[in-house]
Design a protein around this nucleic acid. Structure first.
Lengths: 205, 205
DNA sequence: TAAATTAGCGTACAGTTGTAAGCTGAGATA
DNA sequence: TATCTCAGCTTACAACTGTACGCTAATTTA
């Protein structure tokens, strides 16, 4: 194995080790460099060969999580294209994502309101991408004016993430309940923004 | 000063000290017993005369924050009773609360998605109170059926807290923007749940 | 082949943490 | 007044933290 390959592999071990530690109810700021090194099977000081800081590692993890989020969106769009209600399909896809990648979603959720301004900003950016894509979709598909669509998308994403937080610690039965409630609430917003628009079609919202 | 009085005073110093530390972007789990003691002006070991744990102190702080939240609700109702739109008045009151008691709201927000299951549960309970009171209000004032009102209240609270999180780190101008957007989004939900209900008045939502 | 690079290691140190043990002095109680 | 109670203190310790420094061994380069 070449030097570069070996280094990449160790780097992946570090990242995987960090995610492992995040699994057990920890924050980024609550896991130590030494723990990560232990988990990755390297000496504490070797960590510095790969990351300047724990902060640098943290931002890398947030990026990875954002990547997963964007893949989720693509998957949802594919599913919608092949039939099924938009809201139902989206919520189902999202809930499956949360169950399958709970540590990834938990990372985003925690660091969104977390201690580090840098992490908060990074997560906010990822969520903003999410919101932007949704509002584009709403404009294209539902022919709702831009300013209203943006508000609609933002509120929908807020609801989805908030419900997702609850789903994270719920069992299967409760998860289904949360899903159903969320779907109906999203319909409120859809109906409401439509009604709002039709009441005052010329408004700047 | 009597012994009891002195003890109560020190206890308040500890609580105030902890809130002080929370001000500077920290989590409950990220502030140490020794720091709190330092802030309160006592020796580290004296802390144990008042609280068994840092956890016990943390739950006390969450309780205090919940208390503040309930006072907020009362204030909003008083303001609404003396005229003004329900949504506008509520959002304004809430935003003022966040600005005036940012560390209290930040505590609730962080611990809601935080590391400790006990804190998460405690915060969820406080938010549930909030939601319950709102859905009662909706049922009484708007004459919307119970099951729909509950969904409406839950989504509204989710939006308010999520927007509040953004407002927490915003300057005055951005805060106003967030307020305005939030108000319009809450109207979406109100309109939507009304439309939903009128479409299928007999439904179990 | 000889020289240079570098991933990973071991040692070391100063700083922090929670908390156990026991003392003191002032308020409470009898 | 004599005894008891107990809030707060000091000292002490083992565990953990981040990271500076220098070495080693193996790959890469010339």
């Amino acid at each position: 194995m070449s030097r570069q390959e070996q280094k990449q592999k160790t780097r992946q071990n570090i990242i995987a080790g960090a995610f492992q530690l995040l699994n057990e109810n920890r924050t980024l700021s609550a896991i130590s460099l030494r723990e990560v090194a232990r988990e990755a099977g390297i000496a504490p000081t070797s960590f510095y060969r790969h990351f300047k800081d724990m902060d640098e590692l943290g931002l890398t993890l947030v990026d990875e999580a954002g990547l997963a989020l964007r893949q989720l969106m693509r998957q949802a769009r594919r599913r919608i294209a092949s039939g099924g209600g938009v809201i139902d399909t989206s919520v189902d896809t999202f809930m499956e994502f949360i169950s399958a990648n709970s540590n990834v979603f938990r990372l985003l959720l925690r660091e969104h309101t977390g201690t580090s301004a840098a992490y908060r900003l990074a997560v906010s950016r990822e969520i903003q991408h999410f919101t932007d894509e949704l509002s584009d979709y709403i404009i294209e598909q539902l022919r709702i004016p831009h300013d209203i669509a943006v508000l609609q998308a933002e509120s929908m994403v807020r609801l989805v993430f908030s419900a997702g937080a609850d789903a994270l610690e719920a069992d299967t039965i409760l998860k289904n309940d949360i899903s159903d409630r969320l779907k109906r609430q999203l319909r409120f917003i859809q109906l409401g923004s439509l009604a709002y628009w039709q009441t005052m079609p010329e408004s700047q919202a």
